[in-house]
């Protein structure tokens, strides 16, 4: 006979480890991605401002580039991070289902 308490204890421990590992990695990566995006944007805007001051591009061109970087690309990065979080959730859920089914099936066999 299957000891359900034992099975659920094993599933609980396994699920906690799967979630901690998956989202721990995600949070660290997301923080690094956002920091990298902001640093890159800052450096590019400074470079374009220098080119504007040196007469290498027009004010209109500078504004178009800066808006693309600070408005459109910032939203694109946010969408990517949200999508990666959703994909991480889906992948984690699939792992949990596999883990739970394996934990049960090994006791039935």
């Amino acid at each position: 006979m299957i000891d359900t308490d034992e099975v659920f204890q094993e599933i609980g421990t396994g699920v906690a480890q799967i979630v901690k590992q998956a989202f721990g990695q995600y949070v660290t990566q997301a923080n690094q991605d956002v920091t990298a995006f902001l640093n890159a944007a800052k450096a590019l805007i400074a470079e374009w401002a220098q080119q504007l001051n040196a007469g290498k591009m027009s004010k209109d061109e500078f504004e178009f580039l800066a808006a693309g970087r600070l408005k459109d690309l910032a939203e694109m990065r946010s969408l990517t991070e949200a999508g990666i979080a959703a994909a991480t959730l889906d992948a984690t859920r699939a792992k949990i289902v596999d883990f739970a089914i394996t934990a049960i099936s090994t006791r039935i066999a």
Partner: peptide, 20 residues
């Protein structure tokens, strides 16, 4: 466009595709 703008636009468009 100016070469500086073209280079900047290339960077922005490249990064936009990279996000997708």
């Amino acid at each position: 466009f100016s070469q500086a703008f073209v280079d900047g636009m290339s960077k922005n468009i490249s990064d936009a595709f990279d996000e997708i």
